[in-house]
């Protein structure tokens, strides 16, 4: 029997998951929207973020876990962003962002990153100490305060990304390239540099969500598969490249997925989400959201 507190707990878990998922999916959606390429290695950037968080945590620095967490929040996006820039410069630019070849190349990148981490970090799933530990009392159960902070940080980062897109010059460049890259270039937008920055930005958002979930789920070299699958689902349901649709879909799917995970089983929730998308595509091949503009 599902009781009130259980339902509330499931809703909380779902909301925290949705906030982190929105961050991951926004990165994927941004890359697709601006560059028209699919990054299969997106989940590996999440995994790298978590691994860097483990690396920066108390085990290495010997200090308070909060210090390690803050260092990871700063360092992980830099490291992962640099890797993404290198991948853009060494591979994607050389194949002119051809959609099919980019998919194959990022598939290769997925294995290179994943197996590279297996070589250096090892096959174990390693837990992290939560940076802050306190409990928030709800009627019927106590809830980890860290998870609420995760949700808050994810929302802050989403807002920051939104401001970057809406209020800065580089954001303007990104939006212009998204609408029509040739016209943007004709008006003096450095399109190639915008591509590189967008690819790095997408990877950095993924890495940040990896840092945020690391204290909850630990760090493991195969942990990139779930975020990749869920972000794909979100991006399709939200309409390919539609940022607002992505955020809305992330909220719905994240909460639904989280609730079914808590109340029934995590595996079942992913199967249902995947089949739901298949159903959506049968009815609307372009995704649920109308049009492609945000």
């Amino acid at each position: 029997m599902i009781t009130g507190p259980a339902l509330l707990l499931a809703l909380l878990e779902g909301s925290v998951g949705a906030a982190v998922l929105a961050l991951t999916a926004l990165g994927l959606s941004l890359v697709f929207g601006v560059m028209r390429v699919i990054n299969i290695a997106h989940g590996e950037f999440v995994m790298l973020g978590a691994v860097v968080a483990w690396w920066c945590s108390a085990d290495l620095l010997g200090a308070h876990p909060l210090l390690g967490f803050l260092v990871a929040l700063a360092v992980a996006p830099l490291i992962v962003g640099a890797i993404a820039l290198a991948a853009d410069w060494l591979v994607l630019r050389r194949i002119s962002y051809d959609p099919e070849r980019t998919i194959v190349a990022t598939m290769g990148l997925l294995y290179i990153i994943q197996q590279g981490v297996l070589m250096s970090y090892g096959p174990d799933a390693r837990p992290l100490d939560p940076p802050i530990y306190f409990r928030v009392q709800f009627p019927g159960f106590g809830y980890s305060g860290y998870k609420l902070i995760v949700a808050g940080l994810a929302l802050l980062l989403l807002a920051a990304t939104w401001l970057l897109l809406a209020r800065t010059r580089i954001g303007l460049y990104m939006r212009a390239t998204r609408l029509d890259s040739e016209t943007a270039q004709a008006f003096g937008v450095p399109v190639k540099r915008v591509y590189a920055i967008v690819f790095a930005l997408g990877a950095m958002l993924a890495a940040l969500s990896g840092v945020l979930i690391a204290p909850i789920r630990g760090a493991h070299y195969l942990m990139g598969a779930d975020p990749l699958l869920l972000s794909f689902i979100v991006v399709i349901v939200g309409g390919l490249g539609n940022l607002r649709g992505t955020l809305l879909a992330a909220a719905c799917i994240g909460i639904g997925e989280g609730m079914i995970s808590v109340l029934f089983s995590p595996t079942l929730s992913k199967i249902i989400a995947t089949l739901l998308v298949a159903a959506v595509l049968v009815v609307r091949p372009g995704g649920l959201a109308r049009g492609a503009t945000p």
């Binding site: 591979v91 194949i95 194959v104 190349a105 598939m107 290769g108 990148l109 290179i112 990153i113 994943q114």
Partner: peptide, 8 residues
């Protein structure tokens, strides 16, 4: 992974 990148 290396083979996929090299082929592309």
């Amino acid at each position: 992974g290396v083979a996929l990148v090299a082929i592309t």
